[in-house]
Design a protein around this nucleic acid. Structure first.
Lengths: 259, 259
DNA sequence: TCTTGACCCTGACGCAGCGTCAACCCCGCA
DNA sequence: TGCGGGGTTGACGCTGCGTCAGGGTCAAGA
């Protein structure tokens, strides 16, 4: 007669494992001795070896019991089913591993390379790190919403950087948000003037084509993001409204408020 | 401002997932509105996207938080570590899958092919299925204890089957255990005579070399197994003792009891 | 004989990453 | 004002055990 520890040692498992198998009914509870200790016979050893053989092959514990007294056909079918599951699990892990290999620290974590190149270009142009990060977060939202189209937009964005007004705009905004500027700062007005001008130009060129409905949420998020990163972004929205444009990222004409 | 459902939909996760991330402190709890609803801003969307990017690549949730604000070197190191873990997990599953492919229903589940061949041979010799199963369980114990040596023993076992006395012995035992024979059955005595004869022969040939110590347990298990499969096995042990042999599987000379 | 150390017992929490109730609150619409 | 479809917190369930906590038991040495 074996104690639980001896049984466990003989079959190469832990005592806890044996008790667990009792708990889930995989291995029948044996007789107890006077002290309440479990006493195992040789058949328990044989059962446990069979169980471990299946478990070691990756068979879920819940499916072992039925397999032990199944006919060969049923058994083979179960093996096929389990193998398929394991196969899928492996595939999942390997997909994750490929993702993992792509992971870069910094901006590249969630952005396509075209966008990170754009962000790096902004840094070269001395745009403040704070502004760049705000841009980056904006692009994260954009990439999440339009993952397939974002790459084709980037050349246009790069081209914009050839326009001295755009450069000046980034410069102004960098200064504004890095300082403790207040509402009446003349730089805010200059920035708003440039933005209105650019908006007017884009509008005239028919480039303003924002989808409606679902996209509205994404644009709202972009605007909200700006405000969350710096509450003063709200001023800029107000200044734009005064110039007849609503929104920050999605330009729309609104009636100019009475001055 | 987004509700939890909108946030979840936008980032492609379930509401429960978002709450789980709050619970484990991976995503900060946002403000609540008057009704107690969580209200999310755009930064939450950005955070969640970053988190999902890492999680989808197989990074454990507990390790995501530190990685989000780690410098590139630390980040890369963490990626390497995790990749290594995933690699090992994949290796484990694939090992299991190979095991799975080897699994056969029936005797082959836990026994090397040489042994199953031996069992099949017994079946051909009209040994009763009950006896064969008892043999099989015995071999399972033996294979667990001496997994490397069992295969080299099998040729000897096969050779034994050429001895008519061995065949007769299997025949007698099959009959005995399949019937409701009692202690004084003459077949039991004939079987015991054959076994004593074979033991004597093996002993004379110096083939009796049972390790001591640890192996004792295995032999005790084998004897116990026989008794558990049919209590009448105990008689046979008694008959053998009368002929000067102790044990059932491990033959040892004992003083012959006074008759 | 007492003590020590190694076992044994039950019961319960913890782990990863959520799924899935349950029971109740809130909002918009008819 | 009632209804349906949201939302909220809280809690259990899944897998396969590891790991306490808080005991009782056994064999052996001082």
């Amino acid at each position: 007669m074996l104690t639980i520890g001896q049984l466990a040692a003989y079959t190469g498992v832990t005592v806890r494992t044996v008790r667990h198998y009792h708990q889930i009914g995989l291995l029948p509870e044996p007789e107890r001795d006077a002290a309440g200790y479990r006493k195992y016979g040789a058949t328990a050893v044989v059962s446990l070896i069979k169980i471990r053989t299946l478990a070691a092959a990756g068979v879920p514990l819940t499916q072992i019991r039925p397999m032990l007294d199944a006919d060969p056909a049923t058994f083979a079918e179960a093996v096929r089913r389990i193998d398929e599951q394991v196969r899928q699990e492996i595939a999942r892990l390997e997909a994750g591993r490929r993702q993992l290999a792509q992971l870069t620290a910094g901006d590249g974590l969630v952005l396509p390379p075209e966008v990170t190149a754009y962000l790096d270009r902004l840094r070269e142009l001395s745009v403040s790190e704070r502004m760049v990060r705000a841009e980056r977060d904006g692009w994260i939202l954009v990439s999440a919403r339009w993952p397939d189209r974002v790459r084709e937009w980037m050349p246009g964005k790069f081209a914009h950087l050839d326009d001295p007004r755009v450069i000046r705009l980034y410069e102004l905004l960098s200064e504004l948000f890095d300082s403790d500027a207040t509402t009446d700062d003349p730089r805010a007005h200059e920035a708003a003037d440039i933005m209105a001008e650019l908006a007017e130009q884009a509008y005239a060129a028919g480039e303003v084509d924002y989808g409606a409905g679902e996209d509205a949420l994404a644009f709202d998020l972009l605007d909200a993001l700006a405000v969350e990163s710096d509450p003063r972004a709200e001023w800029m929205r107000e200044l734009m409204r005064q110039r007849g444009w609503a929104g920050w990222n999605r330009m729309e004409r609104v009636p100019r408020p009475p001055t």
